[in-house]
Design a binder for these strands. Structure first.
Lengths: 346, 346
DNA sequence: CTTAGCACTCCTTCTCTTTGAGTGCCAAAG
DNA sequence: CTTTGGCACTCAAAGAGAAGGAGTGCTAAG
């Protein structure tokens, strides 16, 4: 896919896309010439537009309407034309203030992030909660609720708290529990959950553990407590923003999208994609590979804690999104969250 | 508002409402006579309908349309005409099975309840999470995360787990923390959070506490941990169901409703109303006293744990809801949840 | 290469008409 | 006194043109 567009063609494509983003109406040649820095006649613009249509960057809904960008058009715009600016520093401060006032709980902060993303972008905010396995073990505590029922409370380095009820076969004395707790906290702190789990498995395989009943129990209990059944959860805020978009005025289409949101699995999959990428990622339309979301675009970025990536966050909206303003918002939010997770809870 | 409707009028009102619930179309006299057990001519039915309109139970959108029920009509229908049946026992079993397979965590169960309510009613499910203060203290645990930061984990009798980060002024040793934990668990178990809090206040007022530093710290810590900032949270499942209702095909109206859902406060208020009521409560249209919800009805019921009411759950949909089928669903779900909360976690 | 001109397309909007469901009322029948 | 058939009336919804207009592609001249 060669990039062989003349400067002028790019300018015009840019203008069309930006006009369409602003108005949601097909853009005609006349509108373009009147608007801005394009000093050409409508006829010349038409020639270029026809060319851009041949190349697949534009389509016209019908002969007597203007042109609208295709996915390929958006993609080219995002990849090649768009120069993202930094965010206004006053706005940065305003956002940061939002979080500073908040409490310290990580999930609350992530929820706030999703809400803020939605409210300043005017689209729908998404935040993926960190997967257990990618986080760092910090502390575990067992609370005996009844002879057979133990509550495991597990805290990650970044401050995520996870509760888990574990049913056990044998009645454990408070003393035993305490020993187990101490042992685990001493040996496992600082490891990633991934590592903790492999370690548990290897240690259990060694004979020594098999003979030490207490150890065996410790491992059984902790491995039960650390099973990551969350499977990725997403905080979605501002679903109602979707109802504001003219492209989703079709109720049926709208319904499918909202249902997809409710199931979350598609969103988890999409946010997962951004986990290993650095910087902001843009997924446009059918790139989502979910038919229900084929008219939606996502702008995502990964956020990280002390050690490595924790999750991703972003904004979802129609293809026709003001990428130029939202990309910096997502970018800034991700780095802000990372910073806050880094400094908190030492 | 005297109930002076003849038997025949009631029958006709019932038929109209049920027809309207089924079709979402204004009901005409002809449709009624053809349909069911009404053996009258259209003309007679018209007379009765005019009478019902005078009484305020029906309105017609315009002269040449049929009639639709007013809120007063629904109210009368629900209060006087409707005889709710028990739920099909096979369906009961099917529902119960859903929960049995689930894990033990209370919030998971409540989420499942909301989801199930939505999927079997085909409307939107609501479940209010228990307020802390109405629940019974069972166990508290403190985990020291850093010198100044303590994680309080707090378990209620019904199995609700609450985490709270508390910042403290003074560095507490693990030994002190343990003492505090033991003290609190011994003295407070079995009391309601409400009682625990008043107790803390009175004890702190007594001199003895003032001189015992440890005690003072225990009280400070626990009172910080037990502050109920949750302010009532609602689990909403199946928002997309609203998009299926023809009465909300107006996007603007739809948007307002979804926004109201997102804010949750209105729903909390409405669910709160059902806290002290026994059995199923029906709130119709403007009875919600929220203009955005003036075309919505709620069917709610309280659920309870070992000791007293914990919260409410229910279904929200358009006024035109099949009350006859949903009321038993809500009723059964509430009692099922109560039963499960009673037997679990002893 | 650019641009003015022009014929052509076809969506959108408006008005006007038609259609039909449903009503209210009256007078006759039960 | 209640019930019913008949009938004129109302009014939303649906359809059919007709007019308007935005936008295009093409051609030929600058």
């Amino acid at each position: 896919m060669a990039v062989k567009l003349t400067d002028r063609s790019q300018k015009i494509l840019e203008a069309i896309i930006e006009e369409y983003i602003a108005t949601a109406q097909p853009v005609g040649s006349k509108a373009l010439t009147q608007n801005q820095g394009i000093k050409l006649s409508p006829a010349s613009v038409r020639n270029v537009m026809a060319e851009l249509e041949d190349l697949g960057y534009l389509v016209s809904p019908h002969t007597s309407a203007g042109r609208i960008p295709t996915e390929k058009g958006y993609r080219f715009y995002v990849d090649t034309i768009l120069r993202v600016s930094e965010m206004d520093s006053r706005q940065q401060d305003r956002i940061e203030l939002q979080y500073r006032q908040q409490g310290l709980q990580m999930t609350d902060m992530l929820r706030e992030a999703s809400r803020t993303l939605s409210s300043i972008s005017h689209y729908t905010g998404l935040v993926m909660i960190p997967r257990l396995k990618t986080t760092i073990f910090r502390h575990i505590e067992f609370v005996k609720l009844s002879p057979r029922l133990i509550l495991a409370v597990f805290v990650t380095q970044s401050g995520l708290v996870q509760n888990k009820l574990v049913e056990v076969d044998e009645d454990l004395s408070p003393r035993e529990l305490e020993k187990i707790t101490n042992y685990l906290n001493q040996t496992m702190t600082g490891l990633s959950i991934q590592d903790v789990r492999t370690r548990i498995i290897t240690e259990m395989a060694q004979e020594k553990a098999l003979y030490d009943q207490l150890m065996r129990r410790a491992f059984t209990l902790s491995s039960a407590a650390l099973v990551d059944e969350s499977n990725g959860d997403v905080i979605i805020e501002g679903t109602s923003r979707f109802l504001e978009q003219p492209e989703f005025s079709d109720l049926d289409c709208m319904k499918r999208i909202v249902q997809t949101f409710e199931q979350k699995s598609a969103l988890v999959e999409l946010l997962d994609r951004g986990l290993e990428t650095k910087g902001v990622q843009v997924i446009i339309g059918s790139e989502t590979e979910h038919t229900e979301l084929s008219d939606c675009s996502l702008i995502t970025a990964a956020y990280s804690g002390k050690r490595g990536t924790l999750g991703t966050l972003g904004v979802i909206g129609p293809n026709r999104m003001p990428y130029a303003t939202i990309i910096p918002i997502v970018d800034y939010t991700a780095s802000l969250i990372s910073r806050l997770l880094d400094t908190d809870n030492d």
